[in-house]
Computed example of a mutant assay.
Amino acid sequence: MNSLSRSQSSSGFSSPRSRSISDAKIDDNASVDSGFSLGNSSTHSTPLVSFTKGHLKHLNKTLENMHPTDILRFCKVLFPNLYQTTAFGLTGLATIDMLAKIQAQSPGSANTDLIFLDTLYHFQETYELVERVKERYNVRVHVFKPAEVDTVAQFEEMYGEKLYDISADLYDWVAKVEPQQRAYGDLGVAAVLTGRRRSQGGQRGDIPVIEIDEERGIVKINPLVNWSFKDVKSYIDEHKVPYNALLDRGYKSVGDWHSTSPVGEGEDERAGRWKGQEKTECGIHNKKSRYAQFLENAAREEAQKVSAA
């Protein structure tokens, strides 16, 4: 039976489920070393995956030229608490289809659940696609919305209209970054599969297959990192994977309706995101946002006041 999970609890910043070992005594050319290490969270008992820098380098070199399906098979075995975070773009959809095929070949293996950040401002076509994917793949989707709201009306009552124009940093934090942090904490995420590819350009131009997100305390895996848009679309067509109807209307990368537009002939596939702005990412893959820094500074100042009282 298809299942939809919704979470609104608050969890702050600490959800470390995996970590890398940074040791000045370890040389990049040293023998490969790996192991499990107990985490620093008392709420989860699953051990973390720890890597030396040399081991991580070895893994990325080995995985670099492997087919995404083989990368996914490897990651399903290696990582505990593995999830896929997706906005149901083409790359994420291809990943969902590959995971379903792997699951069919190994029915005893654990399913990989999905995490969907519902900003409340997605296109209707995106919401319809989510339902089609659930029906096609019988996959569990964990939906995380901005805290304490369920509708656009409630969101705008709390933050005002067009927050995305008035304060983009605050909007990204409230609608995307905080819900993502809450998802990682509530679900005990150790590693996530993403839909990022180097051919998308911008900050994604040199990402590896496996990377450590120290700020968020997780491992990020980019299984289709080497594929082009054409490669992904060919896979979608060949395997008849359901996709967003907007792609047939000139869109290539689909996000919120207020910051997404069709892509012109010869334009980069993400040119339709935040068109006319320098911005290329929403914050969930960036280093700590300015708003997150503001919140931490405010919390630090408040703690100092309490301590001095």
Rank of each mutant, 00 (worst) to 15 (best):
A175T: 02
F51P: 06
S11P: 00
W173E: 11
A308K: 14
E269W: 02
A24K: 13
G266W: 03
G272N: 02
T43G: 07
Y159H: 15
Y164S: 09
K252W: 03
V306I: 15
G205W: 00
D23K: 12
V143S: 01
Y121F: 15
L99T: 02
D27N: 13
Y235W: 15
A308G: 02
F74D: 12
Q84I: 13
G250I: 03
Y184N: 10
A110K: 10
D237M: 07
V130P: 00
G283S: 01
Q154E: 15
D256H: 04
P68S: 15
V209P: 07
N286Q: 15
Y235A: 14
K76S: 04
Y251P: 07
T126Y: 04
R17S: 11
L193E: 00
S10N: 05
A30F: 06
F13M: 09
Y121W: 12
V149R: 04
H285E: 02
K305G: 03
Y137H: 11
Q293R: 14
E296H: 08
K145D: 08
T260C: 05
A191L: 00
R17F: 07
K76Y: 01
Y184C: 00
T91C: 14
D231Y: 04
E211Q: 07
T119V: 04
N2I: 15
V49F: 10
Y137N: 10
G185R: 05
K275E: 07
L78I: 06
Y121E: 11
A100C: 07
R216A: 08
F123R: 09
Y121S: 10
E296V: 10
I218R: 06
R19M: 13
A87E: 11
W274P: 03
R273V: 02
Y121I: 10
L93F: 09
R196Q: 06
A30Y: 05
K288Q: 13
S10Y: 01
S9W: 00
Q203S: 07
L295T: 06
I102D: 06
S50L: 10
V130T: 10
A153V: 14
H258Y: 11
S167C: 12
E215R: 10
Q200R: 01
